[in-house]
């Protein structure tokens, strides 16, 4: 047998070659975003997902890709004050947005209370889910500064951890809740933007 397609000549080969994408050359779009307080501007393909933009264009690899199907929450970032799964947001949808990733949590070499909580309460083992866990935790605490254990667990519905069994994560979030109250601050820093209503 020769190379595939040689034998059946014209017809078969032609059909295979005819499979062309519905859009030949998609028009790139310019986006401006502020991530962890730093403004960026890039031309991106419309199909680029926000998580790939953060990781591969900006080099912020703290945001993880876990399931890639909106289930595990490893890719959670805070966009305009709202925790979102960045594997299910197009980079072009983030045009004009203010975004906080795990890299933006610590300030002046001091851990954010949620990071301190995960440190003190052993809230991680392998650490893969941790960035998403911490950013989701901030959303929980922003809406409910002193959540019960049950409220924390309900809030973590969209974040999976395969190591800890969750108990230490819950403890870490309660630690952060106490610490934020002590310091009189807000859970979500200004650099995460604000919800637009």
């Amino acid at each position: 047998m020769g190379r595939e397609g040689k034998e059946d000549g014209g017809e078969g080969a032609k059909l295979r070659n005819d499979v062309s994408p519905s859009v030949e050359a998609p028009v790139k779009k310019a986006i401006s975003v502020t991530v962890n307080g730093v403004p960026y501007r890039h031309e991106v393909e419309p199909r680029l997902l926000l998580v790939y933009y953060l990781r591969e264009v900006l080099g912020l690899t703290g945001t993880h890709i876990g399931c890639d199907t909106t289930s595990c929450g490893a890719c959670t970032v805070i966009m305009n004050g709202l925790a979102v799964k960045s594997c299910t947001v197009l980079a072009v949808q983030a045009e004009g947005a203010t975004i906080l990733t795990v890299e933006g949590l610590a300030k002046d070499r001091t851990l954010h209370p949620i990071q301190e909580g995960f440190w003190e309460e052993h809230g991680l083992q392998c650490g893969f889910c941790t960035p998403g866990m911490m950013l989701t935790a901030l959303q929980i605490l922003e809406r409910n500064p002193e959540p019960s254990e049950e409220e924390i667990r309900h809030g973590l519905d969209g974040n999976l951890c395969r190591c800890t069994g969750y108990q230490h994560i819950v403890n870490s979030i309660r630690y952060a809740s106490r610490k934020i109250k002590e310091e009189g601050g807000t859970a979500i820093p200004e650099t995460a933007g604000r919800e637009r209503r």
Binding site: S22, V23, V27, D68, T69, V92
Partner: peptide
């Protein structure tokens, strides 16, 4: 997983969106 390529439009009004919806195939 990466979606197939497409063109992206962000209309500012419902009228503009309707016009795009009528004029763009697929």
């Amino acid at each position: 997983m990466i979606p197939a390529a497409f063109d992206y439009h962000a209309p500012a009004s419902v009228d503009e969106a309707l016009r795009l919806l009528r004029s763009l195939p697929d």
